[in-house]
Structures are given as C-alpha cells and as structure tokens.
Design a protein around this nucleic acid. Structure first.
Lengths: 241, 241
DNA sequence: TGCCGAGGTGTACGGCGTACACCTTCTAGG
DNA sequence: CCTAGAAGGTGTACGCCGTACACCTCGGCA
C-alpha cells in the first residue's frame, strides 16, 4: 500500500538497467558486479534483468557501448595528428572515469555497434588525413588498444586497498626486503626509484601516468607521420625486408 | 588393490600441479580452467590442490612464472635494438603457444619473481645499450605490454568455434548484412577488405598478425633509438612542452 | 469490459572457490 | 625396527555465481 504512495513501482527499461550497471561498476568495480548485485541496486529480483538484457555478456558489451557515447566526436581540423591525439585523449579521460572498461575491452571480443562506430570514425580520420587504405590498416594495428586511451600500466598498485600491509611491517623486515630487491632485481629498483623521487617525497605516488601515455602516443604518431609523408606501402616494405 | 599394482599413487607436488595447469589451459583455455577441472585432470580431489597452491590467483601467477622460463634469455650483442627485438619476438612465440597467458597478464597485477626477473633483464638491455635511467623508465612505459609480445588484436575472431554461423545464413541475408555494414561502417569495411584480399581468396584469413606486430614494434623501436641518439631527457621535454 | 502480452517473481539447478575437520602415508629419530 | 608427527589427500559443506522455466500481475487497447 505504501508502495502506491511512495513510488508507483516505476517500470524498468533497458536504459535504466545499463545506466545502473555503469554506475555500479564505477562504484564497486567490475569483478563484484553480479546480476544479483545489480538487481538489488534496482530493487528488483535478479531474473527481472533478463527481460532487458540477454545475459551478462551482452550486458557488458552494452555497458561499453554506453560509455563510448561519452567520448568526444572527432574535432574537425587540417592536421590528422592533432585530431587523432585529441580523440584518444578524450577516450582516455572517459576510460579513467570508468576504470572497469579497460578490463572489459581487453577481455572480450567486442564487435558491438558502438565499438564498430568508434573504430569507423577513427579510421575515417586517417583516410581523410591523406593515408592510403593500406597504411591506415597497419597503423590501426600499430595503435591497437591505445585507441582506447590506455596502455598496460607497468608498475601500478593492486588498485584497491591502500597499501596497508607494507606499513604494518617493522623496519627491519622492510630493510631486508629492500636488500632482497636490490640484489635480485637491481634494474627494476633503479627504474622504480627514478620515477619515485621525480616529484616530492622519497616515495612519491610513482610516475605521471598521463605523461607516460602521451610520451608513448607521440612517439607512435610521429613515426606514423613519417611513414605517411614518405608514401609507405606494405608492398614496398616487404620488398625491402 | 589394483591401485597398488597400477601406479603406487605417486604423490603430487607443486611443479606437477603447475605443469598440469599450463597444459590444461593450453588445451581448453583459461575460462573453463577451474580448480575442480584441474583436480580431475590430476586424478585427485579438488581440495588436494590447496596443499600445493594457496588459491586460484596464486595458481595463475605461478603459471605465468612457469611460461616465462620458456622465453629465451637476452642474447649478447652490441645493438640494443636487435637484442630487444629478439627478446620480444621470443616472448611472442611463447605467448602464442600459451594464448591464455595474454589474458592473465592483462587482467592481473603481477609482481611475481618471474615477472620481476623478466622486467629486470629487459631493463638491463636498455641500460647496457647506453640509455639513461630516465629515458629507460619512459621507454619501458612506452613499450608496455608489447614487452610480452602481444598487442590487442583488432579484428580477430571470437577465438573458439570455426565461424560456423555465417555459413549457415542464406545468401540474401548475408547480402543484407553486408549492405548494412557498408552504409553504417564504410571505413571499417574498407580496411577489413584491404587486409582480406592481400593474399589469396576474396576472404583470406585476415591479416598477418606477425607482420602487424613487427610493424608496430619497429615503429616504436626506431622512435626510441632517435631519442637515445639525441640524448632525450624528461626534464628537457617538459621544458619544451 | 475483458484480454493479452510485457514485465516482475520464485524456485531450482549445476557450477564455482574454498574453509574446516578428518584420515592416510611417508619419513626421521630413538 | 618402531613410532610420532608432519605432509599430503579426502569429504562435506557454505555461500556465491549465471540463468532456465513456470508462474503471476498489471497497464493499455479492442
């Protein structure tokens, strides 16, 4: 009876399900996102969801399609490199808002309309920018997942709890572990240290992911521009090799 | 009683468990690999495995460590680029033998001894090749998961069944789908076609993954060599930008 | 007014990882 | 050689998971 008063039992629809799923994944991560948990969030019994999505896999695909709409459309511009760069950085900012998406994109084999549409407009930037079909094809492979604005992060944290365990260890143990590290993996240590004291404290938050990403991206884009300018073709490349 | 005759119930140990797990994953893939399935393979009750691995996550990490040992050690040589290239291509051939490993590497945050060891020797190649610590750090980020010899494959198949469903559709439907594709995703179609008729039939097996991988790798390595030669530092780069 | 189909429910099944208590078998020390 | 204790294998059980299937409810249209 209070049901009638309070909320009239508003009906679910696909869009609400997807939005709730994205929000929930943003909140609790992708692994704990179960059909049951999502249903609970929507105040509904688990099986109700199946009236709106075929199954969990389709849900995940659809969630990706939802966030793809958040990526800025390609800006108009004479310089393909600038347009590509902006688009990728826009995708990156979206993916940073929805961290779970990286995993989903990597894990699954998505050929959803959203993904195809994104790729299509992406390819279009190259074709419009004076790239041959041949070169565009290879370039798309070269860019690969960077199209989505992420790279496999190298040294990053377990991405959940706040590194508590390390704090808990006594100083002597920490020293010993450091020694162990220094003798067994001297190079890793050197690199890790380098990134650490760039900024402030002895152990800063690591390195600037954004810088690293753009570094790699520009390296790639510059190489690509060179190929375009010199009229690279795979046939010629094969002949040389 | 026949147990005594047949096999004397040889005991399990960690190595056997790991080897069986790798073999099983090679065989059936990573998703269907469960503790129960693995136990069955070893003719043992599921809980028996927990006397040799802490839990499933640790098992997966350990499996990665096992296959890392299959990667060739870095060859000696004066040319860092050649050494890196060979190492990565060796890693690639290992990862191709164990396709599941890509997924595991992408999904998890591995800081196992094997992974650290591999990274350490990898970093060592750059340092020995005349790279500053600073540049090496950024270069490692730029290479990212390519270190393992894989890139996100762009157009690849669902990776299981042999594209049966398409065959099953009647010609009219196929035509319609093609039309749909052509109008909605013209650029994707163009690129897909380009890769298709490179070789033999109208629809070849797609593109040469190995070529695509080496194309992207060389693009990157060439860019990296240029930075090394001109004494790039992040401080200078920041000043310019 | 009555019906019908879209949408929500309840129950159930088989699979998963793994905690915990138990039993068996191997091995080292008296 | 005997025995204690550790190392390794077993059985049961719990709480998750995705989802098949039969059912009920209700809003909108004929």
């Amino acid at each position: 009876m209070d049901r009638q008063v309070s909320a009239q039992r508003v009906r679910l629809n696909r869009e609400k399900v997807l939005r709730a799923a994205v929000a929930l994944a943003d909140d609790i991560g992708i692994a704990p996102l179960s059909m049951r948990r999502l249903a609970q969030e929507l105040d509904v019994v688990p099986m109700a969801l199946y009236k709106h999505v075929a199954n969990k896999d389709e849900l995940l695909d659809a969630m990706i399609d939802v966030i793809i709409t958040e990526i800025d459309p390609p800006a108009a511009g004479p310089d393909w490199k600038d347009v590509v760069r902006r688009r990728i950085l826009s995708a990156r900012s979206v993916l940073l808002r929805h961290q779970w998406a990286r995993q989903v994109l990597e894990t699954r084999t998505n050929k959803t309309p959203g993904v195809l549409g994104y790729m299509d407009s992406f390819i279009g930037i190259f074709l419009d920018g004076g790239f041959s079909v041949d070169l565009t094809h290879h370039v798309m492979h070269a860019i690969g997942s960077r199209m989505w604005g992420f790279t496999q992060e190298l040294f990053d944290e377990p991405a959940g709890q706040d590194s508590g365990p390390v704090q808990a260890l006594d100083e002597a143990t920490q020293q010993a572990m450091f020694q162990e590290m220094a003798t067994r993996y001297p190079n890793v240590l050197q690199i890790a240290m380098a990134s650490a004291h760039d900024e402030d404290g002895v152990v800063g938050q690591g390195c600037d992911d954004q810088f690293e990403f753009e570094f790699a991206l520009d390296l790639l884009l510059d190489g690509i521009e060179k190929l375009r300018a010199q009229g690279w073709t795979s046939a010629r490349a094969a002949a040389v090799g």
